[in-house]
Amino acid sequence: MLDVSDDVRAEIGDEEADLLLAGDNAPGSYDCTSCRTPGNSERERTSTVLFVGEETAVLAFAHATCIPSQVVTVSEEQLQGAVASITGDSPGTSAAANGTPPAVPGGQAVLGITSGLVLIGGELHPALVVEPTAPIARPGTTGPGDDFLPLLIEQGFIPVTNTADLPSPLAGWSVLLAAGQLHAVLQPGSPGSGQVAWWQAHQALSVTDGWRAAVNRTQRVLIYAAPVGSIGQQPREDLLRDALDKAAAAGKLVSASMPLAGT
């Protein structure tokens, strides 16, 4: 019941792939690298997920209903953190919603990411809210304007006029959730190169059990983005929703929905 994609086979070799498919090296029982709940490769379809860093590669397993078999390129630091999480060598994760933001290419600012649940149509949806710490200048310019939203709209994000509407899907983008933690938001790369990280955590971010349960149900993440100073760090999800409403009313909010990485 094991799935080995062509990309994974190319990385691990035909011999190892055939041993996996024959059951010789199959994991049997495992903790899904996406949702972190138990799985069994003998009773349910299971995906092989190969995490590849600069020097290390780790083969993990996931419910096929969570993510498909795929190769995921991550930084060596992230991979070591994922290994610790997968093997249980790290302490239990907290339910913090905010994480240390990574640098934006070019060093102009950093992107803050906040996770939360957004109620739309009577259903809770997993969401990520992105807000830079400073104005984002268009590449090749020095400012002083803020082109964060225009740049995202050019990528396919849609301006939000009503937060009660479900954001539109954005082709080619996805959210990487591995070992039950948030690692990156991926965007299309150059033709033939696959996806690249638009946002990547320096250290994988914990999400709440409720957020993880919601994403396992919907298989999609809602992304909201606003210019610096529009949202702020909100301690509760109701206050975060209020901030999103105000940003939308002011014409300072764009959104998109995207699947988990590889789907």
Rank of each mutant, 00 (worst) to 15 (best):
L240C: 01
S190P: 08
G107L: 15
T114A: 10
T93I: 10
P38T: 09
R236S: 11
L2D: 04
P132G: 05
S29A: 05
A171T: 13
V110E: 13
T263K: 11
A109K: 03
V185A: 11
P227E: 04
D89A: 13
V215S: 08
L244S: 07
A164D: 14
R45V: 13
V74N: 04
L151P: 02
G143A: 11
Q155N: 06
E237R: 06
H183Y: 01
L205S: 13
V104A: 03
A247G: 05
A256K: 07
P126F: 01
G81L: 09
E154Q: 13
A96I: 05
L117S: 08
A62G: 09
L128P: 14
L182T: 07
R45L: 15
E76M: 03
M1D: 08
G156Y: 07
I120W: 00
L151E: 10
L59D: 01
E54Y: 00
Q200R: 14
L205V: 01
L253S: 12
A95D: 09
A22R: 03
L182P: 01
E123A: 11
T263H: 15
T163I: 15
F157A: 03
V58S: 04
S75Q: 14
W199F: 11
P139Y: 06
F148Q: 02
V196W: 00
F51C: 03
L21S: 05
V72Q: 08
T208Q: 09
A164L: 00
A197K: 15
V254K: 05
Q80L: 14
T93Q: 09
D14G: 00
V196K: 14
V71I: 07
A97Q: 12
A127R: 00
E55L: 09
M258Y: 03
V110D: 06
A103R: 04
A225K: 02
Y224G: 08
R138E: 08
P105S: 03
S69R: 08
P191W: 01
L59K: 09
L124R: 15
V130S: 06
P227A: 02
A213P: 00
N216H: 11
N25E: 11
G13N: 05
E11G: 00
S29W: 06
S257G: 13
L205M: 14
E42W: 07
T48E: 10
S190W: 04
T87K: 11
L222Q: 13
T73L: 14
Y224D: 12
N40W: 14
V196D: 01
G53K: 01
T263R: 14
I136W: 05
E131I: 06
S90N: 07
G112I: 08
P259Y: 12
P235Y: 01
G229D: 01
G99V: 03
T133E: 14
D18P: 00
A26M: 02
D245P: 02
